[in-house]
Nucleic acid binder design. Structure first.
Lengths: 139, 139
DNA sequence: CGGGATCCCCCGCGATACTG
DNA sequence: CAGTATCGCGGGGGATCCCG
């Protein structure tokens, strides 16, 4: 971010910033990162290539359907590569591409923020919910 | 991120990293940031406080229901403040808190990444889809 | 003006079963 | 081992109406 402090890159021209022109790619990235599993897979791949079943065991709450879908999506966007070793039984491993790696770095920063503000958010939620209960009465 | 390059903060102890212990706050932040409107609102507030109807016009594809829900969520987490000016008609404005500002900065970095890799992703998708069509035949 | 309540639809996701 | 195909649900989110 620059000194103008405008997240969406809209210069201070006097008009209130609109969202039309800033949509460029934002939603797509957030959809990618915002789904249930992508960042988890991305982060697991930071240590190096991993096999399909390896990822499956590492996450283990994930269904094989969602793991496949997630990997396909990441592969489609060029964030991971899929490499098949034709053997019996066949072996497939996935690895981050360059962009995949830089993305997971960005996401890592977000995770860092999450850690730092976890308690703050937690406490704020409790206070907010508590205040609500007060306003509306306990019953 | 430190030099170990592990997004989830799992040290290289020789065991494959699991996701159980790293869930700390990650999902919550991603749920917050991953929904359809939060980051947009966050980013619009970077320029300073805004009134409800002002935000509504700025986004304009958003329903008032979702704007309200989004603002409530951000407020609940202590990321924005809600200030009522009792007048006729009443006026309500929203502003970022400190944590809200740092979060939107992080999100801004993600947006920057999105801009830089937009074309890459776009092209990669087209190639991926094109290759799929080739494998399965034109229909 | 700034919302709350309600209805409804879509689809992300999980569970399960089958294949090369 | 590494997927694919099908079914079904839960809830996120839009549309609409109403209120102080």
């Amino acid at each position: 971010m620059t000194e103008d402090g405008t997240l969406l890159g809209v210069a201070h021209t006097g008009v209130p910033p609109q969202v039309d022109r800033d949509d460029c790619g934002l939603r797509e990235v957030l959809d990618r990162v915002g789904d249930r599993w992508s960042v988890l897979v991305l982060s697991l791949l930071e240590d190096g290539p991993r096999r399909y079943s390896d990822l499956r065991r590492a996450i283990d709450e994930i269904s094989q359907r969602m793991l496949t879908l997630t990997l396909r999506g990441l592969q489609r966007d060029g964030l991971v590569t899929r490499t098949v070793t034709p053997s019996t039984p066949p072996s497939v491993h996935y690895a981050l591409t360059g962009p995949g790696r830089t993305l997971s770095t960005e996401v890592g920063a977000l995770l860092h923020w999450a850690r730092q503000h976890r308690d703050y958010i937690e406490e704020h939620r409790m206070r907010y919910d508590g205040a609500l209960a007060t306003h509306r009465g306990p019953g």
